[in-house]
Amino acid sequence: MTASSASSPMSTTGGSEPLATLDAGSRAHLAAIAGRLIPEAHGMPSAAEVLTDDRVRFVLQARPDLVEPLRGALRVELGDDVQARLDALGRGDPAILGALHLVIVAGYYTDRRVRELIGYPGQLAIEVKSGAPSYLDEGLIDAVLARGPVWRDPVTGRRAEVAGAPRTYKERVWSTTAGSTQGGNDGGDST
């Protein structure tokens, strides 16, 4: 039941060698800009060092739509002065500047060493533990219940008064099984 294929827009593979679209001059501009935006400091490497061909290739293969705006950001007419180039893009073409930022940041923060240095292991799969949550034992739910109903009674227009409303969680039945593990149907239709 999947629509994906190698040529699908959902594919993460772009052109076979996106770096071929960047000449040496463009690569030099990219390195200079990367080093300016994310320099070596505070124990972290510069993006100029991190953005190897492998990293740039990874980004552009994942996002082939970034190739053209990147080429636009690195075009020779914008000169050799990094800050002047960034200022010109910010004034005249913020979308292209945004694409340039994204290529540099994505290349940098998908690098294994950088991720280790910032203590980011990636989005982990963490098992949800069963059992009563600690905030119940800590009394945090009881504190909410002790203040009584919060909802506004649509008949009176005032904060609701509910006779016998539980003021602690122990007054409720805590069910760890919490009903069936089957979603069942939507109806209960008897016809």
Binding site: M10, R63, T110, G122, Q123
Partner: peptide, 10 residues
Amino acid sequence: LDWELQQRKT
């Protein structure tokens, strides 16, 4: 690894 890149496009 490209999760955040794809979340900004596809």
